[in-house]
Amino acid sequence: MDEKRLLEVKDLKVHFFTDDGVVKAVDGVSFHVNRGETLAVVGESGSGKSVTSLAIMRLIPSPPGRIVGGEILFRGKDGKVRDLTKLSEQEMRRIRGNDIAMIFQEPMTSLNPVYTVGDQIAEAIMLHQGKSRKEAMELAAHMLELVGIPEPRKRLSNYPHQMSGGMRQRVMIAMALSCNPSLLIADEPTTALDVTIQAQILELMKKLQEELGMAILFITHNLGVVAEMADRVVVMYAGRVVEQADVVPLFQEPLHPYTRGLLRSVPRLDLAAERKERLEAIPGNVPNPLYLPPGCAFHPRCKHFVAGLCDAEVPPLEDAGDGRQVRCVRWREIREVRA
């Protein structure tokens, strides 16, 4: 694996074996995360972005889910590269929280109501760093200060119900970063927060990334957040990567029809003034994962659909230059159309 790379996911397949059939939630996903960068994974609900992040943590609920194929190569703090899909549960536990940490969507329920905030942060520290309770509490106070909670020492003895949603998300971030992980997986960390708090949390994450140097795998469906946070973007649809690019080229010139649809469906203040038309939406819904359409899974909703071409085979992920990748048979023609 390249020295620069921290995480490399190769052809990952996660299937759920339900009573109705096999759901291929993630079907051959590949991407990588470099050290210290922020990779955003974007997609609608059901596109497999959360499942991908859970697969990296090996937290897929099993049964019914299982990682059926692929590799997840991860460079640990010790510099050794391991395939996370092959580790034992015990080895995996040492990685969780210590090398890879995760923050969740719902700060209101992600903290245990029966323990104080200090106890919960200290638990993670004691678990991985073998520190005494006193040292762990000291470090917990330091972490709370780092995430911008006033009077951190007093706050240590607070229970979660005594804090607001934004504060709790800060605590979650403090907890996740307490063991100094090299990768932070953030699964829609701002979705449940109101807009001003969202901005604060994003700002905080950026600041902490500069200070601590961890890479962030940012999972979201909010393109505004992507533009704000990401270095590179992976767009997922129905369990597959459909486009991958650096953030600026992607926003300037999206190649895949799905990405274009996503970007056009975001209201933009600068355009709204001149073009007095309705906001475009992608017609239809995300397909039922049990019965994916043949060929390109997006073709029933695509306005560039050509019968016999798009629904024949799953298009390959093609290189589009400048490290960009796109999964569409007609991406060259579509690019022309726009230009």
């Binding site: 969780r96 929280g97 992600s110 903290l111 638990e123 993670a124 678990l127 991985h128 907890m175 996740a176």
Partner: peptide, 8 residues
């Protein structure tokens, strides 16, 4: 889930 993600 969060506790599990912390390696408990």
């Amino acid at each position: 889930q969060a506790a599990r993600a912390m390696g408990a």
